[in-house]
Design a protein around this nucleic acid. Structure first.
Lengths: 184, 184
DNA sequence: CAGAGATATCTTGACGTCGAGATACTTTCG
DNA sequence: CGAAAGTATCTCGACGTCAAGATATCTCTG
């Protein structure tokens, strides 16, 4: 009964060799249709999958970074600095807007990254209220290694899709994300 | 310079009327290509968008639930019970596996939902170690109202895409999610 | 150039989650 | 039957985050 409800990824595959790729969201949607047949739960087909996939990606990232002795939040901060380009420094405020955490959290993070020797705090020569957070050489190396590791892991996950499908998926997702990025 | 790097959603549109939908991930990827031209960062085009979209969805869900006086975690627990069908009860252990939190967290959540009168704790007649968490009538109403509200919000977000595109997107996402759901 | 308001960062206290351990009960198997 | 292992739930301490407030400095205006 369940298999009849599942979308077929390859329409031309003969039914008896069809590989049914069912996921948790299929079960979720089926449960809602049973309990609330009056409701149109189509949106969940897309957006619940986005949320669930993001959860799985978080876990995968966590293990990928652990190989380099990094926490996900450490990666976020280090790579923000790395992307800034030489001399790899940003103000705490700039880091706030990039990582979407609050200032108290960022202070804490910079403290710990400093203790690990991955960044240093420098006074901002142009603004005595300000501070510049700069990547150390060790921090830069960590960031580069962790990024390479992350990309390797992510490529494996995406191997499920043909290159053209990946491009298509990216475009569809961009349509959904763009309105949020514009407003905020 | 940036606009040249952006994918065009509609290839046949004349360049000067092209609507460029750029998002944060485009900027992210552009920065990496500048700093690490040796690296293939294609995977980020898909997976960073998934993560960022999920973040935005979390915020949108939070505001949608706030209209009903619910926190996201409360919605998760209540709807898990609601989906179970009459008599709307599950053990704390079953709730754990559905919501992916630890037992300490779930105890805390059940406590607070009980205090709000949305669930009740009943002794399991078949296992004296066990407890059953049951939705009250008020809890069931809350869950139903919040779900309707959530779906309305999500439909707005998805209005960016034609129905066929939504179906396509759901299928692509399922391919990526399914391997995780199988293993765990 | 003085003062009001804006800005940048840090400090503090409260909260929710996690993870390890504790307790109570059940199941398995000799 | 009875001990050992398994299972279900709760308790507790540690940790990271947030939000609000404090402090120092800058900028704009008159």
């Amino acid at each position: 009964m369940l298999s009849l409800d599942v979308k077929r990824l390859h329409i031309d595959t003969p039914p008896d060799t069809l590989i049914v790729m069912e996921d948790e969201v299929d079960r979720l949607v089926a449960a809602w249709r049973r309990e609330r047949p009056d409701l149109d739960v189509e949106p969940l087909e897309v957006l619940s999958r986005v949320s669930r996939l993001a959860r799985h990606l978080d876990r995968a990232r966590r293990t990928a970074f652990a190989e380099h002795g990094l926490e996900p939040w450490e990666f976020d901060v280090l790579t923000a600095l790395r992307r800034a380009g030489s001399p790899y420094q940003l103000s705490p405020g700039q880091l706030l807007t990039q990582t979407l955490v609050t200032s108290g959290t960022m202070t804490n993070r910079i403290d710990r990254l400093t203790a690990k020797g991955l960044v240093v705090r420098l006074p901002d020569p142009d603004d005595r209220r300000g501070v510049l957070v700069r990547l150390t050489e060790a921090g830069r190396d960590k960031a580069d290694q962790a990024l390479a590791g992350l990309l390797a892991h992510e490529r494996e996950i995406l191997a499920q899709l043909a290159p053209a499908q990946q491009t298509e998926l990216a475009a569809l997702l961009r349509s959904l994300v763009a309105p949020f990025d514009r407003s905020s």
